[in-house]
Amino acid sequence: MKRILPPWVRPRTLIAVAAAAAILAILPLVHGNRYWHNQLTETLLAIATALAWNWLGGYLGQVSFGHAAMFGLGGFIAGRMQVSLGVPMIAAWIVAGVIAGLYALVWGHPTLRLRGPYFSIATIGVGEATRLICTYWVWLTGGSSGMSLPVQVQLKYQLYWYALALALVALAVSYALRRSPLGLALLAIKSDVDAAGDVGVSAVRLQDLVLFLSGMTMGVCGGFYASYYSFIEPGDMFGFARSISFVLMGVIGGIGTIAGPAIGAVIFVLLRNSLIATYPQLYLGLYGLLLIFVILFEPLGLTGLYVRILRRARPDLGVTGMAAEESAVPATGAGAARVEQREAK
C-alpha cells in the first residue's frame, strides 16, 4: 500500500471514502425511490461545486462572490456544443470546463496578484457582467428564454453516477490540494505571500493553477447541470443566488477544511429544499443571517463546531486528529504554522 500511494495519503481515509462511494453507488438500486434519487444527485453536484469554490475561498483565502459565472458559462457552452454541434456529452463537459477555467484566469490572474480583497470585489463585478453579456448573447445562451436540451429520461437516471464520480474527483482534488506538498505551498501563500516567495513558493503559478482548477470544475458542473435539467436560462445559471449558494455551502461546512464544504453542501441542499421552498420570499435574508451567525459564532462552520465538541468530550486527546488539524489551518497564521510543523515531523 505504502509503495503505491504517495506518503501524504492516509490509507484509512482512502478506505473510508471508497466504502462510502460504494454504498452511494449501489444505493439507488436498493431504494428505487425517484425523489431521493433526484435529491442525492442534486446534493452530489452541490458537493462538487462547494469543494471547487473552497479551493479558492478556503485554501487560498480568496473568497469569490461570482463563481456562477464559470458555472453558467460551462453550462451554456456544453449545452450549445451538444445541441448545435452534436458533440458527445462528456467531451462537451470537458471542453466547457476548460473554457470556463480559462475564463476564470482571464479576470482572476490580474486580480489575484494583489494583496487584500481586490479579487473578492472583482468577483462581484465579474458575476454581474457575465450575466449581462450572456443574457444578450443569444447565439450562445438563447437569451432570456434560455436553451433546451433533448430530454432523455434514461440518461437523467444514469447521471446520478456521473455526479458521484464528479463529487469524488472534487474530493480527491480537495484532499490533494491540502495534504500534498502542494497544499503546504498553498497554506504558505495564504498565510504570507512574501514569506512564501522567500522560501521558493511561486505564488503566481500556484494561484493560477488553483483558479483554473476551480473554474474548470465549476464549468464541468455547469455542463452536468445542463444535461441533468435539460433546460437552462441565463438568469438562473448566472444568478446572484447561485453565486451566494457556493459561498454559503463553504461557510456552513467550514471554509478551508477538506470535507467541510461537502457537509455544508448536504446541509444547504436540505435547507434549500425544505425551508427556502416554504418561504421563497425570505431566502436572501435567511442566507444573510446564516452567514452572519456562522462567521460571528463559529467561523469554521460545522467543522469548527465538531472540533469544539471533540475537545470538550475528550480533553485528554489534546489537539490531535484530522479535524483539529484542519480547523487550526484557516483561522490564523499561527495555526498554519502549527500544521506546517506537524507535517514537517
Binding site: G61, G285, I295
Partner: peptide, 29 residues
C-alpha cells in the same frame, strides 16, 4: 467582534455581505 488582520479580512467580507443580503431581502419584502 471580528479578528483583525489577514484572517479577519475574509470574515469581514462574508459578514458584511450577509448584512447586505438581509438589507436586500428587507427591501424586497
Amino acid at each position: 467582534r471580528l479578528p483583525r488582520g489577514a484572517a479577519g479580512g475574509v470574515q469581514s467580507l462574508l459578514l458584511l455581505f450577509g448584512v447586505w443580503l438581509v438589507l436586500r431581502n428587507a427591501a424586497y419584502l
